[in-house]
Computed example of a mutant assay.
Amino acid sequence: MAPPSVKQHVFAPWNDPDAKPLIRIEGVSKSFGDFSAVNKVDLDIYPGEFFSLLGASGCGKTTLLRMLAGFEIPSEGSISIDGVDMTDIPPYERPVNMMFQSYALFPHMTVEQNVAFGLKQDRMPKARIAERVKAVLDLVQMSSLAARKPQQLSGGQRQRVALARCLAKEPKVLLLDEPLAALDKKLREQTQLELVNIQDRVGITFVMVTHDQEEAMTMSARIGVMNAGSIEQVGTPVEIYEYPATTFVADFIGTANMFDGVVALDEQSHTVVDCQELDARLVVGHSSGVAVGAPVTVMVRPEKMMVQREPPEERVNCAHGVVSDIAYLGDISIYHVRLASGRKVQVALTNLRHTSEQRLTWDDEVYLTWHPANSLVLVQ
């Protein structure tokens, strides 16, 4: 998984109690007949933030984005931008612009004409239009192709033109609906960082909808993980990945091994969980705040696990099984270990040596262990 942007470590207005959000969503719901697409969402998004709504298809993220744009009206709740209630404000009067997944470029217009279209609709003076179009085309490195038409451009180039057209009107908020979905993997990875750099330079608040967790992790200052119309957790990429608030978030972001058990001991520095499935005691390096005897789930990421062929001295934070599948991915290998119960656990090991041989092979008997600090208690 790609590392988070450096910007995330220095940009954190949500931690400042005096910071005012640019976008405030309060108790927003949206129903279509008997179907509830969005359910009582509360969310603050700050000026200059790159915020992502992440979730599977049908979770409500696009509906929420369309309500921000004014294309859908909330069934209840309110949305304000820069302190102004947007309830009765039509889309064309909102301080937002939307970049669609299809890019929606006019095929009969040149790149320059596409970018200038919205400015002409606003009756901006010609000299100012020319100045603004040149500035945004320079920003997205498309000035040399200003005379071309969309059908003469690659997918990545069309994406840049669509972005330039959105930025030309200098909105307070730019909404992006799966903006990189049409690009191939290599171009998508390159464009992710370019978009982050452009957003940082223009200082406009970006709100992006995506189902791609790597995309959200790479580009976002914060992520809102959505499930069944609600936001399960909002946090930085590090918070979402390392400290998921629910089993859904833990399972949706990356890969997680989860073991059910009951709390045997809860202290300030650690929690002990009895796990019948592993026939072992699991020690977690934090207090769960859960009563003894309560059912919980212990989460361990595959890259946090260690593998050994000999049994450990103590049956603490230990799982025993047989290697059933191996996925070689170049930089890492994913090992699927089948436990006695039939359950499979995933382990990710970095391939440090330049060799064609796997350190483990099929049907090897192994023991998996992990440090208490590398696991997390999730309440069921």
Rank of each mutant, 00 (worst) to 15 (best):
L68H: 10
K185L: 15
D184M: 08
E178P: 10
R165E: 09
V263R: 05
S31Y: 08
A319G: 06
L349R: 12
Q152T: 00
S375V: 03
L282K: 08
K126M: 10
L278C: 13
E26G: 03
N39W: 00
A221F: 07
Y241A: 04
Y243F: 11
L54D: 12
V323S: 08
L282R: 09
S356H: 14
A228E: 14
V366R: 11
D184C: 06
T246Y: 06
R222S: 02
D16W: 02
G235S: 08
C166W: 05
P312A: 08
R148C: 11
V273F: 02
E303G: 03
M98N: 09
C166H: 07
S375Y: 09
M142N: 09
E76V: 06
G289I: 04
G330C: 07
E303Y: 02
R24M: 10
F32H: 10
V323A: 06
A264T: 04
P4C: 03
I129Q: 01
A164V: 12
D331V: 14
G261Q: 12
M1S: 12
L360Y: 15
I23F: 07
P311K: 15
M299P: 00
S80Q: 12
D177F: 01
Q152E: 15
V96W: 09
V300A: 03
E314A: 12
F51C: 05
W370E: 13
P312K: 04
C166A: 15
N257W: 00
V96G: 08
L368K: 07
K134V: 06
P47R: 00
P295T: 08
V161E: 09
N97W: 00
A164C: 07
L282Y: 11
M299F: 01
G60Q: 03
E178M: 01
D177M: 07
E277R: 06
D279L: 08
V41S: 01
F71S: 05
N227P: 09
Q308C: 11
E313S: 14
A348Y: 11
D260Q: 14
E365C: 06
T255L: 07
P311M: 14
D44V: 00
A256E: 03
K169C: 10
P244Y: 06
V196G: 04
I240F: 00
H371N: 15
L119P: 01
G289H: 07
M109E: 11
R309Y: 02
K304I: 00
K304D: 13
G224V: 05
D184L: 09
